[in-house]
Design a binder for these strands. Structure first.
Length: 175
DNA sequence: TAAGTGATCTCT
DNA sequence: GAGATCACTTAA
């Protein structure tokens, strides 16, 4: 069992990092209770060129976190209702992140954060026991044969090239 | 299939 | 300040 730290996320290959996040555990600690759940669905948002990445519209107050150090949480409000959880990747000044869309026990990025009570207070904070939210490698490996790569959800506005890229990784239902 | 919901960003 | 947009969910 090993906790993932900043240097585990500093690669520029966010897509590969996203793929590797499958099988890791998202760990929440609250009131002395620890809950670890397998990550089964993710999406990569890779840099200023990626028109689906928030940072492609420039560096703003909201996207500041994406430009910061890797291994931190990027949490923002979507559609006025849902808080979405991402982990920042790439070196400082390179804006990229991985959206955690689904866990073994929860599917849907909005339901996930609601269930685990994750909100914007985590934005910009480190993924570590200090914040009560982090990621661990507990030895689970999903083989490529049960991992699907698909286009990302809800990003048609990003134009054909970016919308069609296989930046979403999901563990097949039947495994 | 469409409404709900509100922060964020652009334009005035 | 107004208006458009939006990495979703739920109910119908």
């Amino acid at each position: 069992m090993r906790r993932l730290v900043e240097t585990d996320f500093d690669s520029r290959d966010t897509v590969a990092l996203a793929r590797d996040l499958l099988g890791k555990h998202l760990v929440v600690e609250r009131n002395g209770q620890m809950l670890a759940t397998l990550i089964t669905e993710v999406e990569a948002y890779d840099g200023p060129e990626d028109l689906a990445c928030h940072a492609s519209k420039g560096r703003t107050k909201r996207t500041e976190t994406l430009f910061g150090p890797p291994g931190r949480w990027y949490v923002y409000l979507c559609y006025g209702i849902h808080e979405l959880l991402n982990v920042v990747t790439g070196p400082c000044e390179y804006p990229a992140a991985i959206l955690i869309r689904g866990l073994e026990s929860v599917s849907g990025p909005g339901r996930l954060t609601r269930k685990l009570k994750i909100d914007r207070r985590f934005n910009g904070r480190e993924a570590s026991p200090d914040t009560g939210l982090w990621i661990e490698d507990r030895g689970t490996r999903f083989d490529d044969s049960i991992v699907e790569a698909t286009p990302r959800i809800g990003v048609d506005y990003a134009g054909e090239d970016w919308a069609n890229r296989l930046y979403r990784f999901v563990v097949s239902e039947k495994r």
